[in-house]
């Protein structure tokens, strides 16, 4: 069975390491915060200016001055800190943030990512995504393997305007965990009950399949 969005987030949460500062993008990445493994401590950075982001506030305790980059009301954890946007991106560009998790419309086998613009259609802007992907050493893309039309989002080359070049190292989808290197997607794990044939059929880019592809463990 393919994973749902929570399943993808839960699998990505297994990549977290104790002591890491982590930036989570909007959508599936935000859900990663719900699955932090026992015994490890991580702090979440939101690029609008908080380190130590906590869960949503209880009803009635929302503060218009305390939001995340998705403009959602949040809370600050003990030891949190607020800062301006230039300082925030100094943390990101200066590689002080250990892991960035973000969504994508397309990822290519060379590590290119497109997630901000559909020409002539949607105009939202790149927000902080270009700064994040250009600087982070450790980027995980969290997304569905195919788009709403059923087409693969894992391509030989991106067709949409790029957000960054050669920057994605790992992709976790509803079907599989893949590593990107040597101009190919290397299959590492498959979702429980998903066959290699299913993954092959849903991947348009070059897919390297080792002899043994274990199922994800939860």
């Amino acid at each position: 069975m393919a994973l749902d969005k929570n399943g993808i987030a839960q699998r990505i949460a297994q990549e977290l390491r104790d002591g890491w500062y982590v930036n989570l993008g909007i959508g599936i990445p935000t859900l990663v915060a719900n699955f932090i493994p026992e015994g490890i401590e991580v702090e979440f950075q939101s690029e609008n200016g908080i380190l130590g982001m906590g869960p949503f506030p209880f009803e009635g305790e929302e503060d218009a001055d305390l939001i995340n980059a998705g403009k959602q009301t949040i809370t600050a954890q003990k030891g949190a800190v607020f800062f301006d946007s230039a300082t925030s991106f100094a943390m990101i560009r200066g590689q002080h943030v250990h892991l960035t998790v973000l969504g994508a419309m397309e990822v290519a086998q060379n590590g290119d990512i497109a997630n901000w613009k559909i020409p002539g259609k949607m105009v939202k802007g790149m927000g902080g995504a270009m700064d994040l992907v250009a600087s982070a050493e450790n980027i995980i893309v969290a997304m569905m393997h195919t788009n709403r039309a059923g087409e693969s989002k894992l391509l030989e080359r991106c067709t949409l305007p790029l957000t960054g070049v050669g920057c994605v190292k790992k992709v976790v989808t509803n079907l599989a965990v893949m590593e990107i290197r040597d101009d190919a997607f290397h299959l590492l794990e498959r979702a429980p009950g998903v066959s290699i044939e299913d993954i092959k059929a849903a991947t348009a880019g070059k897919l390297v399949i080792p002899d043994n592809v274990p199922e994800m463990q939860f």
Binding site: P55, F56, P57, F58, E59, G60, E61, E62, A64, D65, I67, G70, K71, Q72, T73, I74
Partner: peptide, 12 residues
Amino acid sequence: EKRIEQRTVRTK
């Protein structure tokens, strides 16, 4: 007015 764009809360 300090309008909130995305009011997200959890229940007690």
